[in-house]
Nucleic acid binder design. Sequence first.
RNA 1: CGGGGUGUAGCGCAGCUUGGUUAGCGCGCUUCGUUCGGGACGAAGAGGUCGGCGGUUCGAAUCCGCCCACCCCGACCA
Length: 583
Amino acid sequence: MVIMRWSESLIRTLREAPREAEAVSHKLMLRAGLVRRLAAGLYTYLPLGLRVIRKVEQIVREEMGKQGALELLMPTLQPRELWEISGRWDDKELGMLKLKNRENREFALSPTHEEIITDLISREVRSYKELPLNLYQIQTKFRDEMRPRFGIIRAREFIMKDAYSFDVDEESARRSYEKMYEAYSNIFRRCGVKARVVEADPGSMGGEKSEEFIVLADRGEDIIVSCSECDYAANMEGAQRKEEDEKGQEKAKPLEEIETPEIRTIKELKSFLKEAPEQMIKTLIYQTAEKTFAVLISGDREINEIKLKRLLGCEHLQMADAETVEKVTGAPLGFSGPVGLKGIGIIADQGVTKIINGITGANKKDRHIRNVNIGRDFHPDEVADISYVREGDKCPRCSGGLTIGRGIEVGHIFNLGKKYSRVLKATFLDKEGKEKEVVMGCYGIGVSRMVAAIVEQNYDSEGIIWPREVSPYQVHLLLLNARDPNTVEVANRIYEELIGAGIEVLLDDRNEQAGSKFKDADLLGIPLRLTVSSKRVSERKIEIRNRRDGEECVIATEEILNKVKELIKTEQVKNNRRLSKVI
RNA sequence: CGGGGUGUAGCGCAGCUUGGUUAGCGCGCUUCGUUCGGGACGAAGAGGUCGGCGGUUCGAAUCCGCCCACCCCGACCA
């Protein structure tokens, strides 16, 4: 029998959070006695915390299973040789922790398992008849993080679910990818978190397409742009915005050259001319391996070089040095402008088209020009979205307001293509007997991190509010007058009855003050709280309270089981309804 | 790895500027008594290499140097 009596457990709550904790989830997880820190980024999951981990794992297993994925378990320690084949042994980005055994053989503590699983498949799969396959594991991963943060959110050692799909062709691989997308949506909903999907850069994983599932939270490691009206979300690099529709009604005035001694930056120009930066056309000279060109952007915005690179389809891009600027514009740094600029291409950010009677450099030392207008005074070769978005910009999908905040990456799905199957020779024979490379995908979920993400989205001033399916227990049974034998007896009977019905109950049988028990119950955050007190016992009644909305009712003791079952069901419905809205 | 901050009892903190008895406070913990529906009260107790090492000094939690740990910002990021 699993111990579910507080007096026999190891649940140690803290009234105050240790100084080390800053993030809400970190503080609450320490205070509620879910985890304890061993060293930076290394945590022990106490019994209560482990129960939550197991709940998340269970949901993951069920949803993966529904999509036909099979669970397996691969070694944590992996030989160098395999990583040499994929060329990732020296990949700094993975943060591999490398070590040697006593015979000086080199190993790594696995940061991820593409190499191992692809090697496995290369040995086991021969025919197209054996595909598709989706294999996953839930296992401890190591990453030698430069900077672990936010408690369990960015840890050195963490629990991760990683899945790998193997298909005969791109078409089939796309279906496998969609299945995982579906599984992930279900997993996050059941875990009680609202996740936003963000297009991501595949980075060191390689491959063609990847999407991140991000949980919006005050403390997260990623900067996320999200819409407050719809589900749109993106990282800073990829975020787009809708440009204001209407152009001002102001009439174009004639050009006017003005003297601006030693005034080079937007900031200086602003205080010198007393004009708003939105009126200024910032002109920057960029260089790639092949060419030099000018980039125009509104004075109040910043150029997003990632977007610019994508537009140009180039790898390397840099700002031109002072000498080059002088050569192409005829003026020193700080006085560049598009008017009269010859011999180089001009790319304008979309916002520039809305500037009427703008101010820009005159391409002459200590001179700027006023009343510059696009179409009349200069003609960009290309107009595109090449700026970073800002707080308050319009959502590209629904025109709602964009917010810049933080998020926690809890899931990431990749379409890997043949990157690994090619080098590790994972091939099969197709219907025609031709040898082909397997098309792969990989799909991660940070299980331990998910627990922190859940807390970040489910708490109040008193403590955690567990979504039903991940709560360590379903019912928190408070025994108030632990010295009154009659009350104790009733509490025990209810405890046995609920447990007998398969409901997970935590019985707070400590001989503590009522106030302490209530406070701890709020801190722990179990969805249903039952209070057994001598006062109510004499009336043959018991109190039930919902942790999330504080709703309370008093019912007869013999109705408890039915009532609890009903409330558990209701709680699930509420969870789903809550998550269908944008958070 | 760069910048900033913090290390004093299990947790939160004071003391350090201006060196000087047995290093304090709140919470928690132990025992006894009274309490008992939103973190009770009284009494008695246990618990400290003041992060470490070295230096200055008659004397260091306090001044100086080096190191370590942890947290925050950045770079980086399954």
